[in-house]
Every structure is written in structure tokens, then in C-alpha cells.
Design a protein around this nucleic acid. Structure first.
Length: 493
RNA sequence: GCCGCUGUAGCUCAGCUGGUUAGAGCGCCUGAUUGUGGAUCAGGAGGUCCCUGGUUCGAAUCCAGGCAGUGGUACCA
């Protein structure tokens, strides 16, 4: 508690992309997590928790960027010099867990997990270096049911948050469709890994840069609005038009999508498989009332490295009536089939498919859209501290209220009554209880209804009439206090 | 990583063709109201003008370099 000279004072602050979460923000996150977890559980997913960091080689490295091999993941060395990394998603730890416990697990294994993950990247709007993910994965099923189930699950998660079909969409594609297109192009020109990445990334950017932007990325390159230049794939005109044809497939209607895509990719085995899988999903979903919110979309690419079949992502859209400065934020969740990931730990191939919701990003978007997830809750009832010799009496009141399940606190500061009222106001207390000398002599307490007071405050001009308003402030016998308060709180809800 | 913009009070920002004591609104604190949240009125606290160096008699203001934030882009397992 000594006074330090100004040189000793540390400037408080956090590294970029990290943040504190206050009571309100945590409430929102917890609310989202509990609602979605319930949906996951209702589908028979079992919860798993794994550590925040593991051996780097177990987490694997799927970062294709050769220029900066250390970017992306936070890593450090153990005392035996083994490299450890903070997890960057929940799927890699799952693969390790399954590889380690394969014989004990009931297959197909349906697991859900919630936890923070860390990525060492430049943060942006809705994008942090520490954020929450909420994953559901199915390991040990290689048929379309598992993929379809995750798509239905994604829809149900959006529905349970109160979002409707106009607010969200699930866009589905299949890695084999893209493989097929690349195969078709490879007839005309050499497609190596580097070129393949550039092409896939260009396709992925359709919604951001538009058709002409994709065209530029496939040919010479594109300059963005800040003047920065991205090198293109330098494909031939014929190849580019083939890709653009593929991207112009009708994605408003799943049946149309399948027939139009068929005419492009039918000549390849991969294409035929993709169409079969998409058709199966379509048939099942259509029968179960998952219709216009689930779309097939040829521009969906997802992560570049490990997906092998069905891929999908969840997007939110809100009327931008409240503004024009709504920054572009990517999808709030996504997933797909990754049949090869677990084979890093085992010799046999195990089918797996998963879905991940970016809870932090979802919460950010809901906040920006001013979307309400249920009623805002009240703070605790405040018992004012009037006379020190009766402190015990205030705690008796608090205890009686808590025993009834009512949130209650005694003011623990040293300020006067006015400051205490302000405190109650700021903590969103519904009610204040005053037991001063006057009240105690009469065996009563004064109750002040802050919610009602707030409603009336705009229309009232004199301080006197505000305080004396009997709706806002009234007396009640001390022994009827608890029942009165609980009646008051129930009626205000 | 690349390109742009910004950095002045707790917050939002004004001031910037260099000139003495750096401002506003909101918020915060105190009082009018000795026991009452709002409104009103009157007071008050709060600043290394991001940092370092340069130009100058003189820099919040001009220049250079850093750092931080932000937007776009790249990457995003």
C-alpha cells in the first residue's frame, strides 16, 4: 500500500487480441453455451474436456504457409525441451484422444466440447487471439447420416438461440466437387499444390470480392482497395471460365444445384461421388423440414488441409437497418468430414466428421445486431446500511431473502444514503430495503421499487412527489417483508 | 505479413497555416436535498496532447523513426 513513484507504475493493458469479459458479456456467453450444449446433449453427444496445451506434434500443424512456419500457434518448450503448443482448435485434441483411447470408446463416438483456443494471428472484428469454440464431432461413421446429422444439429443450434430462417443459413458443399473441378482443369494445364491452394482460396473469396474479383485472382491477380496486390493463379481463359461456370451454379434450390453441378462434374469419379452424397443429404433433410435454411453452395471451401468430403458453414445475416458500418465478419461456425485426420495416430482409417461453433464470434455478432437472447435479468436486492449497530439486522434480512432464492446484498461501502441509492441503480437492483431508526421503532421496513421508479422518472418533475409516490416507495411490516418482495419480483417478471 | 487511417481528460471528440494558462459534450465527485436513484442549478476533481529524436526563440501542432489502435488485404489447421 506504499505510494510508489510514477516511474514504478505499470501501465495496465492487455496484448492485442485478448480481452476481459465483464459480467454482462459472460452472461451472454454462458447463455449461448448452455443453450447449444443442451442441443448437443439431446442428440446423444457426450462431453469431453482436454488440456489447453499439448505436445506440438500431437496437435499437428496444418498451416500451409511456408513463409512463416511459426505463425499461427503459440508454442513453448517444456523442461525436457519438448515442444508444447496451446491448442488452436478442439478437433486436433479429439483426434489425439481417440487415437489414445480407441479401444475404450463406444463407436460411433459422439463427443462435444467447449473450450478456449488460441491462435497467434492478427485480430480483427469478431476475431480474437483467444476465443471459445463449441464443437460436436462424430468419429467412426463413414456414411451420410453423420454429416446430415451435424447439419441438422447446426440448424437446431441456431433455432434454439431464437434465430429464424431469415437470420441464418447453412451452406453445404463437398470437397470432392472441388477435386473434380481441379481434375477437369488439369487436363489443360499443370496444377501443382501451390496453384491448387491459390485456386481454392480464390473460390472461397467469392462472397467478399465478387465474380470479377475471383476472375482476377484466377488470372493475373487482384489489387484491394488499400492498394495491396494479391498474385493470381495465372490460369488459361478456358480454365477460368470453367471455374466461373461452376461458381454460377444456382444455389437457391438444392435440386437445381445438383442437376446443374452434375452437368459440369459428372465426367469424374470424384464428381459423381460428391453428387451422390449431396443428394442423400438433400433427401433426408427435405423429409425432416430442414429446407430453405440449408443451401448447397459451390463457393464453400473451408480449411484447406484436412477436409475430405462434405463441408459446410453457418452464417448469420441481419437487416443492416440500424447502420451501414457493419464490418464484414466471417462465418460463425463450420465443419465437415475429415476422414484422414485420425490416421495420424493409427494405421487404419477412421471416418470422422465434425461441427464447430465460434461462440465468441457468435456473441460479438449478436451484440452488434442488438439481438436479445431472452429477458435481461435483475441485479440483487440491496439492503441499505443505515446504522452500524444494526449491521446484523441487515444481514438477517439478506439471509431471509436468499433462503427464498432471491438475490440480496447488504451495502458494504462507507458512503451515505444517496450514494447507496446510486449503487443500487448501477447494479440494476429491482428493489431497495431501508430499515433505519424510524422503521425499526415501528417494526416496519421501507421498500423502494427501483424498476417502477425508473419508469416514472421521465415523467416526473419534482423530487418530492417522486419520493412520496406510494407505488415507488411504501412501508411494510418487518415480518411480511420477504413475502412482499417475492410477490413484487414475480409480478415484475 | 502488406497497404491505408488514427493516437489530445474515464468516454466521444474539437484545437493542428507553430505563440504564453490545452477545450467541449457526456461521465465522475460535492452541495442545494442534515434519510432517498431521475431532472434542474451551483461548484469541483481529472491531461507526460502515444514514445523517442530532430527543426525552431518557441512544438499538441512541422519532420523522421518507433509503438499502439483501427479498417482493408493476406493467412485462418
Amino acid at each position: 500500500m506504499s505510494n510508489s513513484s510514477s516511474k514504478d507504475i505499470i501501465k495496465p493493458g492487455l496484448p492485442r487480441g485478448l480481452r476481459d469479459l465483464n459480467n454482462l458479456e459472460l452472461k451472454l456467453l454462458k447463455n449461448i453455451i448452455s443453450k447449444i450444449s443442451k442441443v448437443y446433449e439431446s442428440y446423444g453427444f457426450e462431453e469431453l474436456s482436454t488440456p489447453a496445451f499439448e505436445f506440438s506434434d500431437a496437435l499437428g500443424k496444418f498451416l500451409p504457409d511456408q513463409d512463416r512456419p511459426n505463425a499461427g500457434v503459440f508454442s513453448f518448450q517444456d523442461d525436457d525441451e519438448k515442444w508444447l503448443s496451446l491448442r488452436y482448435d478442439l478437433t486436433a485434441p479429439l483426434a489425439r484422444y481417440v487415437g489414445e483411447n480407441y479401444d475404450k470408446i463406444t463407436k460411433p463416438y459422439k463427443r462435444f466440447q467447449v473450450g478456449s483456443v488460441w491462435r497467434n494471428e492478427k485480430p480483427g472484428p469478431g476475431r480474437f487471439r483467444e476465443f471459445l469454440q463449441l464443437d460436436a464431432d462424430i468419429v467412426g461413421s463413414d456414411n451420410y447420416l453423420a454429416d446430415s446429422e451435424l447439419i441438422m444439429l447446426a440448424c437446431d443450434c441456431m433455432r434454439t438461440l431464437g434465430l429464424d430462417k431469415n437470420n441464418y443459413s447453412i451452406r453445404v458443399s463437398n470437397r470432392k466437387l472441388l477435386d473434380s473441378i481441379l481434375e477437369l482443369i488439369a487436363n489443360n494445364e499443370q496444377i501443382d499444390d501451390a496453384r491448387r491452394l491459390i485456386i481454392l482460396r480464390a473460390i472461397d473469396k467469392l462472397d467478399r470480392v465478387g465474380v470479377s474479383g475471383v476472375e482476377r485472382l484466377l488470372s493475373n491477380g487482384r489489387k484491394d482497395e488499400s492498394g495491396d496486390f494479391t498474385k493470381g493463379a495465372e490460369l488459361s481463359k478456358a480454365s477460368i471460365s470453367k471455374i466461373l461456370d461452376f461458381l454460377s451454379i444456382d444455389n437457391e434450390d438444392r435440386k437445381k444445384f445438383i442437376s446443374q453441378a452434375g452437368s459440369i462434374v459428372n465426367k469424374t469419379v470424384a464428381g459423381q461421388e460428391a453428387l451422390k452424397e449431396l443428394s442423400e443429404i438433400d433427401l433426408l433433410l427435405a423429409k425432416l423440414d430442414y429446407k430453405e435454411e440449408v443451401l448447397f453452395d459451390s463457393s464453400i471451401v473451408r480449411g484447406l488441409e484436412y477436409y475430405t468430403g462434405t463441408i459446410f458453414e453457418a452464417n448469420l445475416q441481419f437487416d443492416s437497418s440500424n447502420d451501414n458500418k457493419f464490418p464484414v465478419i466471417g462465418s460463425i461456425g463450420g465443419g465437415g468430414r475429415y476422414d484422414r485426420l485420425i490416421s495420424r495416430f493409427r494405421k487404419d482409417q477412421i471416418g470422422a466428421t465434425g461441427f464447430s461453433i465460434g461462440v465468441s464470434r457468435l456473441a460479438t455478432i449478436l451484440q452488434m445486431a442488438e439481438f436479445q437472447l431472452g429477458e435481461p435479468s435483475n441485479g440483487p436486492v440491496l439492503i441499505l446500511k443505515m446504522d452500524t449497530e444494526f449491521d446484523y439486522s441487515y444481514y438477517q434480512i439478506a439471509k431471509e431473502l436468499r433462503d427464498e432464492g432471491i438475490l440480496a446484498e447488504v451495502y458494504v461501502g462507507s458512503s451515505g444514503m444517496k450514494a447507496q441509492m446510486k449503487y443500487a441503480d448501477k447494479k440494476n437492483s429491482p428493489v431497495v430495503i431501508i430499515e433505519g431508526t424510524d422503521e425499526r421503532e415501528k417494526g416496519i421496513v421501507t421498500i423502494k421499487n427501483l424498476i417502477k421508479g425508473k419508469e416514472i422518472s421521465t415523467s416526473i418533475d419534482s423530487r418530492e412527489s417522486w419520493i412520496k409516490n406510494s407505488d415507488i416507495q411504501f412501508e411494510v411490516d418487518r415480518d411480511k417483508l420477504v413475502s412482499k418482495i417475492s410477490k413484487l419480483l414475480n409480478s415484475s417478471n
